[in-house]
């Protein structure tokens, strides 16, 4: 089985601090990591490989040259190969332009049975790139995957919904997007780390994928970011005490009245 995993390098939001004076994010010195959901996607591929060692895993990412470190990390976890699409021309791409770029890279890789991506990237939270890639490649897709089983060329997938789940059967080739409930990503292994740097990472520019400025990059992107801001931190919730349901309800009502909400 040949698996392609889409991964993205993102700032580690756990390490992002907020400037107390300006209220903006301090990105400086913030380490970059593999996007969390993407690590779950990679882990799902690695689990398939654990069970069937002939499985071949190729990671693909669009990003700056520094994304190399994240790809090495994926190799050290056990992926076989990595492709980095890096070009000034693709910089500033929104989800539409990004999925143009990545689907072009996947077409160039050509041979695959399954594509795995994370649900969404923690720096953008759109959850659009995975589904768009599937559309552009004409593949069936299942999003929000929290469990999956493979039998021949048939996948049985548990798809998380807000208030439950769906069980979906889908045929290979297809694209799945992973959520964190799917698995616990493994650590890099020490031998993996030392062999990761012995491997070559394939680097493609826009020209290699015959991408032009009308489908990738900032100018081609239909989305314009109008303003970005740090959301106001939510206040602490208030617990209402009371021994009986009646007491709790009257406690709640008096809180709501005090705030003129009822």
């Amino acid at each position: 089985m040949k698996i392609i995993v889409c991964v993205k390098q993102v700032p580690d939001t756990n390490e992002v601090k907020i400037d107390p004076k300006t209220g903006t994010l301090i990105r400086e010195g913030v380490p970059s990591i593999m996007n969390n959901d993407d690590a779950n996607a990679l882990e799902a591929a690695l689990k398939i490989k654990d069970a069937e060692p002939s499985t071949h895993i190729t990671m693909v990412t669009m990003g700056p040259p520094q994304a190399d470190v994240m790809l090495r990390e994926g190799l050290a976890m056990g992926a076989d190969e990595a492709v980095l699409v890096s070009d000034r021309l693709v910089a500033g791409s929104d989800t539409w332009a990004t999925s143009n770029c990545i689907s072009a890279a996947i077409k160039k890789i050509g041979d695959y049975d399954l594509i795995l991506a994370g649900r969404q990237a923690i720096d953008g939270d759109t959850a659009q790139v995975g589904p768009q890639i599937a559309e552009k490649l004409g593949l069936p897709q299942v999003t929000y995957v929290e469990d999956l089983e493979i039998e021949g060329d048939k996948l049985t997938v548990k798809r998380a919904l807000e208030d439950g789940y769906e069980m979906i059967e889908v045929k290979l080739p297809c694209l799945l997007t992973a959520i964190k409930e799917l698995n616990e990503p493994r650590y890099m292994s020490v031998p993996g780390i030392f062999s990761a740097y012995k491997k070559d990472i394939t680097v493609w520019g826009a020209a290699d994928l015959e991408l032009s400025a009308d489908i990738v990059g900032l100018d081609a992107s239909p989305t314009n970011v109008y303003r970005s801001f740090t959301p106001e931190p939510k206040g602490k919730g208030k617990m209402i005490d009371g021994d009986t349901p009646a007491e709790l309800v009257s406690g709640l009502l008096s809180e709501l009245k005090a705030k003129h909400l009822v």
Binding site: V69, R72, E73, A76, M188, V190, I193, F194, A196, Y197
Partner: peptide
Amino acid sequence: TKEQELLRTM
């Protein structure tokens, strides 16, 4: 080296 840095991360 890059390997040593990555190892520390791990």
